[in-house]
Computed example of a mutant assay.
Amino acid sequence: MTRLLPGVIAMAAIVVASNILVQFLFGQWLTWGAFTYPLAFLVTDLMNRLYGPSAARKVVFVGFVVGIVCSLIGTQIMGEFGPLVTWRIALGSGLAFLTAQLLDVSVFDRLRGGAWWRAPLVSSIVGSAVDTAIFFTVAFSGALSFIEPANDVSWAGEVLPLLGVGPAVPLWVSLAVADWCVKMGLALIALVPFRAIVKANRPQLA
């Protein structure tokens, strides 16, 4: 377990930081948490490449538990418009994280024998898309308002141009698309530290 400690610490730090930074807006469509959370896929992929899928799943479960704790704390902290974290957001966050990260592990493992960049890139893209779809749908879609009837998310259903310029869609769809675009960009950028860290630790795997 000692060998996994750097991954465990990194994953926990990313989850905690993202839960804090998601409270602060970055422009009209994003929060600062959108730029830290995708790094969780980098940690998962590094653990998978260096120590295998079983080790990667252990790190994922640590991140999941830390995320649950952060969400539970958030539901007890009152902000200007109510709890910092609603139960829908907590549910969406936990479900999205666990599903997407485990999918990332599975896809990476299937592709680990190909070119060095294929497994981390494809697994991160697939995992990120699933993560975004699950979280924003569960947390903000009007069709799922029965999950938490007392939580008014009508603001997220306001119909506006996609990202301010596209076809008319609910606001939460624009938020999801913006989040997904950041994840895609960071999936590409993360290939640089992924390659460097793997070469430094396991040159034969690089």
Rank of each mutant, 00 (worst) to 15 (best):
F61A: 12
R49A: 15
A55E: 10
V192E: 13
V107F: 06
G82Y: 08
F194A: 08
L42M: 08
E158K: 14
P38C: 11
G27P: 01
E80N: 08
S145W: 00
P149L: 05
G33F: 07
A115T: 11
V15T: 10
M1H: 13
G7R: 01
F41T: 02
V59C: 06
T75V: 08
V16Y: 02
I197Y: 07
E158H: 10
S18C: 06
R3T: 13
L205E: 13
G27H: 07
F81V: 09
L72R: 07
R118D: 05
P193E: 12
Y37A: 08
M11A: 08
G82A: 08
G52R: 04
A13D: 10
L42I: 12
V59N: 07
T44F: 06
F146G: 04
I147C: 03
V43A: 12
N19K: 12
L162I: 06
R88P: 02
V8H: 09
W116P: 08
L39K: 01
L84P: 00
I68M: 13
C70Y: 01
F81P: 00
I20L: 15
W116N: 11
A12G: 15
F140E: 00
C70W: 00
L84K: 09
L186F: 09
V122G: 07
A40E: 04
I68C: 13
V182A: 06
T132S: 12
V43R: 02
